[in-house]
């Protein structure tokens, strides 16, 4: 372990850190939005929900790495060229969308039937029912799963290295290749992820505990 190597690598890791953070944030927000749409679509069984089931199946059952390769190296074959960073974000949204959809759908389905029926009895329209009854409660039920998905998706960003995006993992692997030292760079890599993931993981479990208390109290 040598300090010099660590010191010299700090700027590169800071860049990588913020790139990871940026791509993860955009990708996760995109995945959340896509997930909400897909979940409601499936919940109300709107036309075309079979296609969405297929999307979820493909997204969940293939590795992100292959999804990225397909977009980045495959699609140009039919004339569709997408730059690396956009590919990364697109890939994360494609992957995360299905996980988030499942999380939301689980939450929506966990809303007790009696709640929906009570809403209908007082004369709420379908839209009002969704807006005031199903969505606010469903999102509470789905929060633990969403939290787990966020952590999972952040970890998945390390796969971006395979399309040469200089995020945290790529920075480390590059430096390992250049300098033939692994200890320092692997350590810095793990620390970089830990800086994001540990506070997030602690925050989420704190949030979940709080939520459970709120839920039990009524």
């Amino acid at each position: 372990m040598s300090w010099i190597y660590i010191q010299q690598a700090i700027p590169a890791f800071i860049n990588g850190f913020f790139l990871t953070l940026k791509l993860a944030t955009i990708g996760i927000i995109g995945a959340l939005l896509l997930g909400i749409v897909v979940a409601f679509w499936l919940y109300y069984q709107v036309i075309g929900h079979h296609v969405l089931r297929l999307y979820i199946a493909v997204s969940r059952n293939t590795p992100l790495l292959i999804q990225l390769f397909f977009i980045y190296y495959g699609l140009p074959g039919i004339g569709l060229k997408i730059p690396a960073e956009q590919t990364a974000i697109l890939g994360l949204i494609f992957l995360g969308g299905s996980y988030m959809a499942d999380a939301f759908l689980g939450g929506l389905e966990a809303v007790p039937k009696i709640q929906v029926e009570s809403g209908q009895v007082v004369g709420l329209s379908t839209w009002q029912l969704a807006r005031y009854v199903i969505f606010p409660q469903g999102i509470l039920y789905s929060l633990p799963a969403i939290g787990a998905n966020i952590i999972f998706l952040i970890k998945e960003t390390s796969i971006f290295t395979v399309i040469a995006i200089p995020e945290i993992t790529n920075t480390a692997l590059d430096l390992i290749g250049q300098n033939y030292r692994s200890n320092e760079y692997l350590l810095m890599m793990v620390v970089s992820y830990a800086i994001i993931l540990i506070p997030l993981s602690l925050g989420l479990s704190w949030f979940e505990r709080r939520l459970r208390r709120v839920n039990f109290s009524n």
Partner: peptide, 8 residues
Amino acid sequence: FRIVPTIP
């Protein structure tokens, strides 16, 4: 094993 990504 949960926190550290698989690549490192």
